[in-house]
Design a protein around this nucleic acid. Structure first.
Length: 286
DNA sequence: TGATATGTTATCTT
DNA sequence: CAAGATAACATATC
């Protein structure tokens, strides 16, 4: 599912594809997933594409931004200008989208003046697109903690937030108001790399463990971005060109229940934490 | 067939 | 009241 590295990958590709393009038409096939005034974006040009946490912003030249959250199963696929607007057959299998564009999970289509199209597919309809005036974006920004790949993500900050709660460390890692962009895949992977049991109350972590965890988060996210994200089993995530990412080959614990730990060969366990699956090695993670 | 998975938010509980 | 826990959302898959 799209977490920080996946949304970052989408952002980089979209920026290359969309900069300067003028929105000509928007087809909304699932009304509840498009929020705000459509007339505010027709005729506007894309001047920037940015990411905060798992949120994507497409900034226009008229003071408005199209915010997008992919939630669990959202996909953004860009198809360059074609002569006709007929259905596109994709060269690579498209998870949950019928391998056609538009497909049965296509919810919104943004058409640009040059004939190119951006398809927003979403099997489960949890994702959304929202037209927001730039000056109202600050309210959205306040919802998120520091970005793990920016300077504000310091050891002192982590020591501080962990000391204040006895919630399980994995739940704190996935709390977007504390740290921006970590979801189930990378929270599990980072805890394995740092050798920390996901159930540990956050306020019991020692300074050395927090340092190791911080280092694990940063190195794993960087590596996953380099590999253009994780397209795990039954996962909707694909790149803007519809190809899968590559980091699923490097997963150490996520979706590996019952398989041997790469470090000690003990079977990886799966438990429920806060209603979500936690994968870990009981032997290597204390 | 009914449980399961998933990120976020709304709502309930402690 | 605030922190923490849980339900709700949609829908294909097993």
């Amino acid at each position: 599912m799209p977490e920080l590295p996946e949304v970052e990958t989408i952002k980089r590709e979209l920026k290359k594809s969309l900069l300067g393009k003028k929105i000509a038409q928007v087809k909304i096939l699932s009304a509840k997933q498009f929020v705000g005034r459509l007339d505010k974006i027709i005729g506007a040009r894309v001047i920037d594409v940015w990411r905060q946490a798992k949120l994507l912003g497409i900034e226009l030249n008229n003071g408005f931004t199209v915010l997008t959250h992919l939630k669990l199963t959202g996909q953004l696929v860009f198809v360059a200008n074609q002569k006709t607007s007929a259905v596109v057959k994709m060269p690579h299998p498209l998870p949950f989208a019928d391998n056609k564009l538009p497909g049965k999970t296509t919810r919104i289509i943004i058409k640009f003046e040059d004939g190119s199209r951006l398809f927003f597919n979403d099997l489960r309809k949890f994702g959304w697109m929202k037209v927001v005036e730039n000056r109202k974006l600050k309210a959205e920004n306040l919802l998120y903690g520091p970005e793990p790949l920016e300077k504000s993500f310091t050891l002192d900050y982590l020591k501080n937030i962990f000391a204040k709660t006895r919630r399980a460390i994995k739940i704190v890692l996935m709390d977007q108001t504390k740290i921006a962009g970590l979801g189930n895949i990378y929270a599990n992977e980072a805890l394995f790399k740092a050798g920390i049991d996901p159930r540990r109350p956050a306020n019991t972590l020692k300074e050395g463990e927090i340092r190791a965890l911080k280092e694990a988060i940063v190195s794993i996210l960087k590596e996953a971005i380099k590999d253009r994200g994780t397209s795990a089993a039954d996962d909707a995530y694909i790149q803007v060109n519809a190809r899968p990412g590559g980091y699923q080959k490097k997963l150490k614990v996520y979706q590996r229940e019952g398989q041997p730990c790469f470090r000690c060969h003990y079977p990886i366990q799966r438990i429920k934490l806060g209603g979500r699956s936690a994968f870990f090695c009981p032997h290597c993670q204390k």
